[in-house]
Write a protein that binds this DNA or RNA. Structure first.
Lengths: 144, 144
DNA sequence: TTTGAGAGCTATAGTGACTATAGGTTCAAG
DNA sequence: CTTGAACCTATAGTCACTATAGCTCTCAAA
C-alpha cells in the first residue's frame, strides 16, 4: 500500500529539503509527481525511496551525474552490477586520492604553524611560507 | 628595480591564469594596476608578489576571504602575528576535520564495494546500501 | 463559516572561485 | 604594413544547492 504524501513529508522522510526535492524534479532526477487540484505535489512511497537513494548517495559524495547513472543502472534487476561497481570503485578512488592530497596539505600547514615563533609579522613564518613557495617542504598539490 | 610587465607575464610568473588575475582585480583582492595608452594592464613586481602570495595560499586551501584578511594583516610588519597564526591554525583544523570525515567515507565505500559479489543488480550490495542507510556500518557524515 | 497559520507554489538570484565564450582592440615581430 | 598573438569588456556557465519575494492552498480551531 503506497501512501500519498506532501512534498514536506516526502522531504522529511527522505532527508532532503523541500527546495532540493523541487530542484531534483527540475533537473529531471526524479519524475514530476501528480498534483492535487490545488497544484500541490503528491508523492508515493516509491518516490520517497528514490529520494532516499539520492540523498544517501549524496552523503557518500557521489555527484548528481553519477547518481543519475546509478539510478538508471539499478532500474533493471537482471542486469549485471559491474557498471554500478565501477562507479562506486571510482568514487572510492576519488576519496582516497583526496585524502592523500589533504594529508600533504596538513603536513605543510602543520609545519608552517609550528615554525612560527609568535613574534611580529616581519618574522612570521606563516607569512614567509605563503610568500615563497620555495619554503615549502615538498611540492604540495593544489587543494582538491 | 621593479619590472613593468603585461598581465600575461604577471600571470605566468605568479602561477595564476590571466582571467583569474582580472577576477581578483574585479573583487578587489588586488589593486587596479596602471594601464598603457592602449588600455592594457601593467604590473610591477610587488603586484606579482601579491599574486604569488594569493596563489600559494589558494593551493593551501585558504578561501579568498581568509586570504584577504591575511594580506591585510601582513601589511604591517610591526604587528604581532597572532591573528595570522590563528587563521592558519584554523585552516589546519579544517583540513584535519576533512580528512577525518573522508576516512569514514572511505571505509563505508570500501566496505560496500568489497561486499558486492559481482552478480546481478537485484543482489548488488552497492545498490542495497545506497537504498538503505541502515546498512551502513556507522553513521557516516555528509561529505565535506 | 470564517479565519489565520503554516505549507505549498513559481521565478529568480546568490553562493565560491573561477572558467569559457563572443566580439572587439592593441601590440610587436617580420 | 601586415599578421597573429595577446589583450580588452561583458556575460554566462559551472556544481548542487540555498535563499528570497510574492503569491496561493489547506486544514483545524473558533
Amino acid at each position: 500500500m503506497s501512501m500519498a504524501q506532501s512534498i514536506g513529508d516526502a522531504a522529511k522522510r527522505s532527508g532532503c529539503t523541500v527546495q532540493t526535492v523541487r530542484y531534483y524534479e527540475r533537473i529531471g532526477l526524479i519524475a514530476s509527481p501528480v498534483r492535487t487540484m490545488g497544484n500541490q505535489r503528491v508523492y508515493d512511497d516509491n518516490a520517497v525511496d528514490r529520494l532516499s537513494f539520492i540523498r544517501h548517495a549524496r552523503t557518500l559524495g557521489f555527484g548528481l551525474d553519477a547518481i543519475r547513472e546509478l539510478l538508471g543502472l539499478s532500474a533493471d534487476p537482471e542486469r549485471s552490477c559491474a557498471e554500478i561497481d565501477a562507479i562506486a570503485t571510482s568514487r572510492l578512488e576519488e576519496v582516497r586520492e583526496r585524502i592523500r592530497r589533504l594529508k600533504l596539505l596538513e603536513a605543510e600547514l602543520a609545519r608552517m604553524v609550528r615554525a612560527c615563533s609568535q613574534g611580529s609579522v616581519a618574522e612570521c613564518r606563516v607569512v614567509q611560507v605563503l610568500s615563497d613557495h620555495g619554503l615549502c617542504a615538498a611540492d604540495h598539490p593544489d587543494v582538491a
